[in-house]
Computed example of a mutant assay.
Amino acid sequence: MTSRTVTSIHPANRDDIGDLVTRRPVPGPGVENVGAFLFLNHHGPQTYPPNNRGLPFGPHPHRGFETVTLILEGELAHTDSAGHESIIRAGGIQWMTAGRGIVHAEVSPAGFKRDGGPMEILQLRVNLPARLKMTAPRYVGVQAEGIPTVESEGATVHLVSGEWQGGKGAVESLTGVFLGWVAVQSGASVTFDELRGRDVFLYVARGELHVGGRQVPQFHLAQLGEGESVTVTATEPALFVFGHADPIAEPIVAHGPFVMNSVEEIRQAFADYQAGTFGVAEIIAG
């Protein structure tokens, strides 16, 4: 079995949104996307004081892709124009398929704004192929206790979607995406296989990793070469996001909140949104 090695390492560039600490490894210099993995915002880690304004993501539209949010610390309130509402706590996830069009809001619940506390969130965008870009919107919110975990000699793999070592993720991906986050003790290793022909995503949120002969520090994205497997070793306690997906051999045209296959489809998305066909999302107070 051939092992993947690191071909390049990309820092997450600092791009704060108001008082929200934000780092973005992709898109960035030298990396527009990692196959189907289009975008990652790493918010925090930071501690909000009491009587804060909370997260700033009021109602906004999306079409043509999926958003996956990992809540490492803090809480996140979601509402959307398809009628979904939830408050997800630390250790939980949100998986939203924008599909043909949705308006959603992701804000801090009232209790967090009143009391403050630690906050760290990872927001990932995953592409959809043309055949699914106009699929019906859907939303899945899962608390920490609903995320299956697999222990492996000093590593804990939190399975969001896909299968690994007999465990099955909390969400059934429309496109067969494997996604999870992994907490690794210092000196421990974890191996992922069945990667032939897949786009592989690896981002270090905490600590430092040794991957295929290279050190990958905190707040860095590693791009990997071809191969059937990859072994990741923590040189200190670490947490990383790992995913893989089948390539989507189609044009990517992204503009603001929409990701389609052509400029004309982007124009149509704006026209449909302005015409009100995406609906309305109200911010929940809870």
Rank of each mutant, 00 (worst) to 15 (best):
V68I: 15
V68Y: 03
V68S: 00
V68R: 01
T69K: 04
L70Q: 03
L72F: 15
E73L: 14
E73H: 15
G74H: 05
G74C: 09
E75Q: 15
L76S: 03
L76P: 02
L76T: 03
A77C: 07
H78L: 13
T79I: 04
D80W: 04
D80V: 07
S81F: 06
A82N: 09
G83T: 09
G83W: 06
G83Q: 09
H84I: 02
H84G: 06
H84P: 02
E85Y: 13
S86M: 02
S86A: 14
S86G: 05
S86F: 02
R89Y: 08
R89N: 13
R89I: 05
R89A: 15
A90P: 09
G91T: 03
G92Q: 00
G92F: 00
I93H: 01
I93S: 02
I93W: 02
I93D: 00
Q94R: 00
W95R: 02
W95P: 00
W95G: 02
M96D: 01
M96W: 06
T97G: 06
T97P: 05
A98H: 04
R100P: 04
G101H: 05
I102G: 02
I102A: 04
H104G: 02
A105F: 11
A105I: 11
E106G: 09
V107H: 06
V107F: 07
P109C: 12
P109G: 12
P109V: 11
P109M: 13
A110V: 15
A110I: 10
A110W: 05
A110Y: 08
G111D: 12
F112H: 14
K113Y: 06
K113M: 13
R114G: 05
D115F: 15
G116C: 09
G117I: 05
G117R: 04
G117C: 08
P118M: 07
P118D: 08
M119N: 11
E120N: 10
E120K: 02
L122E: 01
Q123I: 07
R125I: 07
R125P: 00
V126M: 14
V126K: 05
N127A: 12
L128V: 08
P129H: 04
A130D: 12
A130M: 11
L132E: 09
L132P: 02
L132R: 10
L132T: 01
K133D: 11
K133W: 12
K133R: 15
K133E: 11
M134P: 03
M134F: 10
T135W: 03
A136C: 13
A136Y: 15
A136D: 15
R138H: 13
Y139V: 00
V140C: 05
V140M: 10
V140T: 14
V142H: 00
Q143A: 12
Q143N: 13
Q143I: 00
Q143F: 00
A144E: 14
A144K: 15
A144L: 12
G146S: 08
G146Q: 02
I147Q: 01
I147N: 01
I147R: 00
P148N: 10
T149W: 10
S152M: 14
S152D: 14
E153N: 12
G154S: 12
G154L: 10
G154N: 09
T156E: 03
T156S: 04
V157A: 10
V157I: 13
H158F: 06
